[in-house]
Design a protein around this nucleic acid. Structure first.
Length: 594
RNA sequence: GGGGGCGUAGAACAGCCUGGAGUGUUCGCCGGCCUGUCAAGCCGGAGGUCGCGGGUUCAAAUCCCGUCGCUCCCGCCA
């Protein structure tokens, strides 16, 4: 008898003799009759047995792996379970075989409970048995399948690039891998296949993509791990809109596959300037309103020192209406703290009262014209909370943008809001006056003249894709002229020798007839996270690491033998050796083999 | 590097503010009963280094200091 998927059984199967294999989800033993919910990858079906006839049934415990043969039958009148796809049928047992027993579980295999993440990762193989995690694994697989299908139809070539590459000190910190054959030298794991895919354009591939693992050795966040997966893509003879069009077609296909929803194209486009002015961020969540408003003119000549000083300097005054909020002294203080944490000087808040007045600690410093200007500018209705930041432009909009998210952002991801942010600045000026690239140094400027005349004001041909306030990824039209590439390095203060040493091989390649090209990369983890309604990418990564970079199951990273270090020509510092002496304490779930 | 939250039985929590015997709830586990449940039900039972270390106190899960771990955020992430 061939095995059949437990979750596939339907009334049309009634009367069939079947064999199913899976895990005991639950056992409900009534004495004279026992019900066993058997779960396999397809779902759950109810198995019914008389424990007196089938002695093994009494021994079954949760998560035993079993095989059942029996006959599919209709459930008796009134006992169907409408909550289960298989709820109309059950399997009457002929034989139950225990394939493998299971120890008492460290936690229940069900979605209902929130379990400490350390325990989940320590027993990830059990965590992944939970329906939600299984669904996330399947969604991820379907997403990559849809990506490959869509790009294959458009004539793209999937090419693998190396994961042992050379280290580039700019940008994120590299994950390093020591070389044994060349003692003292190091490979780096790629932060992205950026230069290799550009070489593929020079190689005449024309349309390239890769589902590429990338590595960045920076601190963790809910949406950041050391290693992550990107769809990396590049096209020759392309301009920006070719890229946006292709990426849209991929995203639309993935959403269709995972959500069954048709996303409207083309996606909304915002320039970076507009995005910052209206939402205080380059990844705005446009599922809700509340835009930032420029109130500088309202406060021209203000008698309130903080405002007049800001306007007399380089500053600006921006406001936002965050609507009715549960507002208290403590709440206001917390928001002000948050503003300071974000690098701001402070925060002014006002409450719109029923009588049209504005209640605020600073109201007494403002005249009636100013208060009216705020009220009108922010379209205040009674009960609304108004927030005002007086600061340098970037601080002011970023503070209000962050508070907008803190106070108004939906927790789930039921609605989807895709958009493009375009026309990013080419360079960023650090506090100390040094100029760094804002995307990466291979990004084409929009205008060569602009770049030369006013580098810090120059616009680039870089663009980001944003979904529900999450930055999915970014791309750009690349520089394909070696002379322009040199000019960019010059502006960045990378001298000719350094550029030659680090990127000489690439600058050389650019000299052999490089086609104009453009591309993009987006994070598959983040995309699947949002589409699955999750708020952490750890939920869509099968075996993630904790915030300290540890895998609680395997114990990685671990110490290695001295002989291994000797082969690599590596010695540990005093500090590292001292740490090695120290047995780890307070670890409630020590890996068995540490 | 910095700030916030959390750490109590196998799991999820309450207890902590205002110190007084490891007290309690739900699930799981063990034993028993039970023929239509589906988070089955009923009866009984076992199970604890209150993360770890130190301090204050007659007395600490509770207050103080330190530390470890998990998590969210800032910095960082071209």
């Amino acid at each position: 008898m061939t095995r059949i998927a437990a979750g596939s059984l339907r009334p049309s199967d009634i009367g069939k003799s079947v064999s199913i294999s899976g895990w005991v989800q639950r056992r409900r033993d009534h004495g004279g009759i026992a019900f066993i919910d058997v779960r396999d990858a397809s779902g759950v079906v109810q198995v019914v047995a008389d424990p007196a006839e089938h002695e093994t049934v009494a021994d079954l415990k949760m998560e035993y792996c079993i095989s059942v043969t029996g006959v599919v039958r209709a459930r008796p009148e009134g006992t169907a379970n409408p909550d289960l796809p298989t709820g109309g049928v059950e399997v009457g047992v002929d034989e139950v075989v225990v394939l493998a027993a299971a120890d008492t579980l460290p936690f229940m295999i069900e979605d209902r409970v929130e379990i400490d993440e350390r325990a989940r990762l320590r027993y990830r193989y059990l965590d992944l048995r939970r329906p939600r995690m299984g669904a996330n694994l399947r969604a991820r697989s379907r997403a990559t399948a849809a990506i490959r299908r869509t790009l294959d139809e458009q004539g793209f070539l999937e090419v693998e690039t190396p994961t042992l590459v050379n280290s580039t000190p700019e940008g994120a910190r590299d994950m390093l891998v020591p070389s044994r054959l060349r003692r003292g030298e190091f490979y780096a794991l790629p932060q992205s296949p950026q230069l290799f895919k550009q070489l593929l354009m020079i190689a005449g591939v024309e349309r390239y993509f890769q589902i590429a693992r990338c590595y960045r050795d920076e601190d963790f966040r809910a949406d950041r791990q050391l290693e992550f997966t990107q769809l990396d893509l590049e096209g020759s003879f392309w301009d920006r809109d070719d890229v946006l069009d292709t990426i849209e077609s991929v995203l639309v296909a993935v959403v269709k596959d995972l959500r069954g929803v048709d996303v409207t194209r083309p996606f909304l486009r915002l320039t970076w300037q507009e995005s910052m002015d209206r939402f205080g961020t380059d990844k705005p969540d446009m599922r809700f309103g509340a835009e930032i408003v420029d109130l500088s003119r309202v406060f021209e000549g203000s008698g309130f020192g903080v405002f007049s000083d800001t306007l007399d300097g380089e500053g600006t005054i921006r406001g936002i209406n965050v609507g009715p909020q549960d507002w208290s002294r403590g709440r206001a203080d917390a928001m002000t703290e948050r503003a300071k944490e974000l690098g701001g000087k402070g925060l002014v808040w006002m409450v719109a009262e029923e009588d049209g007045s504005l209640r605020s600690p600073v109201a007494k410093f403002l005249d009636e014209r100013e208060l009216a200007g705020v009220r009108d500018g922010l379209a205040a209705k009674p009960g609304d909370i108004l927030l005002i930041a007086a600061d340098r432009w970037k601080q002011a909009v970023e503070i209000l943008g962050a508070l907008r998210n803190d106070l108004l952002r939906p927790t789930g991801h039921d609605d989807l809001s895709f958009l493009w942010v375009i026309d990013f600045p080419l360079f960023e000026e650090a506090e100390d006056g040094t100029i760094t690239f804002s995307h990466h140094p291979f990004t084409s400027p929009s205008s060569l003249d602009e770049m030369r005349d006013n580098p810090t004001g120059a616009v680039s041909k870089a663009y980001d894709a944003v979904l529900n306030g999450v930055e999915l990824g970014s791309g750009s039209v690349r520089i394909h002229d070696p002379e322009v590439q040199r000019q960019v390095f010059d502006i960045l203060g990378i001298d000719r020798d350094t550029a030659e040493r680090r990127f000489g091989w690439f600058l050389e390649a650019l000299r052999y007839g490089t086609p104009p090209h453009a591309g993009f990369a987006f994070g598959i983890d983040r995309l699947v996270m949002v589409l699955q309604g999750e708020t952490s990418i750890r939920e869509v990564i099968p075996f993630p690491k904790t915030q300290s970079g540890v895998d609680p199951m395997t114990g990685a990273p671990t110490w290695v033998d001295q002989t291994q270090l000797d082969e690599l020509g590596i010695g540990l510092t005093e500090e590292a050796l001292a740490r090695q002496e120290q047995p780890e304490e307070g670890e409630p779930l020590p890996p068995a083999e540490r």
